[in-house]
């Protein structure tokens, strides 16, 4: 088991993205530090476009994540509907 993580700027967008992550990844752990939110999970974490759109109440492109994301740990798999971090181990 290895931990994957994503760190986001603590801003208006991120609040809703983190809400969506927590809903779709029940094991995810959310950690707050000044100006930054870090979400960790065992081996795998998925951000789903539909859930984020529902939380934000608007259209959202998975590549928009690039504006708010400040760091990640794990391999990335991204397409139009989701953004996934994972370790193969």
């Amino acid at each position: 088991m290895s931990r994957v993580f994503i760190a986001l700027q603590d801003n208006e967008n991120a609040r809703f993205i983190v809400e969506a992550i927590s809903e779709d990844n029940p094991g995810a752990e959310v950690k707050h530090s000044p100006a930054m939110i870090r979400v960790e999970a065992d081996d795998r974490l998925t951000i789903r476009r539909e859930t984020v759109e529902e939380k934000l109440g608007r259209d959202w492109d998975t590549q928009e994540l690039q504006v708010d994301m400040i760091s990640i740990g794990g391999n990335v798999d991204e397409d139009d509907d989701s953004f996934t971090l994972y370790w193969n181990t």
Binding site: M36, Q66, V67, D68, M69, I70, S71, I72, V76
Partner: peptide
């Protein structure tokens, strides 16, 4: 953090 948003891409 603005730079780091690019770094996340560089890291990957």
């Amino acid at each position: 953090f603005s730079a780091q948003s690019d770094e996340a891409r560089h890291m990957t």
